[in-house]
Amino acid sequence: MSAPILEVPVLETTGLGVRRRRAWALRDCSLSVPAGRVAALVGPNGAGKTTLMLAAVGLLAPDRGHVSVRGTAAFVAQDKPLYESFTVGELLEFGRRTNTRWDGEGARARLDVLGVPLGRRAGRLSGGQQAQVAITLALARTPDLLVLDEPLANLDPLARHDVMRTLMGEVAGRGLTVLLSSHVIADLEDTCDWLVVLNGGRLQVSGDIDDLLAGHLLLSGPAEAAEGLEAVSATGTGRHATLLVRGDRALGPRWSTRRPNLDELVMGYLRSPQAAALPGPAGVAR
């Protein structure tokens, strides 16, 4: 599995549990995201992604465990809420007056580059512009951790590209740590270097994406030979089977092996909720 984490974690949760309407939305979640990483938080609907993010930014009080952020966290919630009757300029004023640290000039410059008019009411902006304004407000706080809940949802492909480019510019510019959720893994493949997989309120995977990909193999071969092989998950039809397995192993010539891509890795874990790939003592497969 991945090497022990030497980097300083910006976001750290230990034994985090959140109960919503009697059921656990999140339980026993211990993870850390090191500084300067762009972490992808993936999982099916209802996996607890939003719950984890709300707890991370202090909007949700955990029922169990702890969550800590080194420095300040900025948050862009799902649907990018803005005061719709405010003009963009007034939203910047809102940010300036409700924050101790505020980079108003940088925000203005970014919106200028993006062509978002400061005098327009937020409610009259396009979806892509609203997302850009919401992210600009968050970035102007010069946070150490930026948490984005589904920042790309409801955006057209061009706007998705622009939003990601804005984010990546900031990350490269000043070592910002980002946690962003999505259920479209293709959006994340090129930009993220850390992966967190949640499934049914439980943490399944947390680690460096390159390490994770290097630590897994995708095997395809005859279904009868798959018996007894320890795999994360297996799919297949009839006589043919495809297995996601941990570590390197030499198998007979009946198997073809290759490295999985991010999508195959994530899908492999989501298919078998009991499997886990976690760093440290928790990394033992359950």
């Binding site: 909007l59 919630a77 799902q78 809420p81 803005l82 940010g95 409700t98 924050n99 919401a134 407000l137």
Partner: peptide, 11 residues
């Protein structure tokens, strides 16, 4: 409107 998540995550 969900704006409490905007208002309550400023400093």
């Amino acid at each position: 409107r969900g704006t409490h998540r905007l208002a309550w995550t400023q400093s």
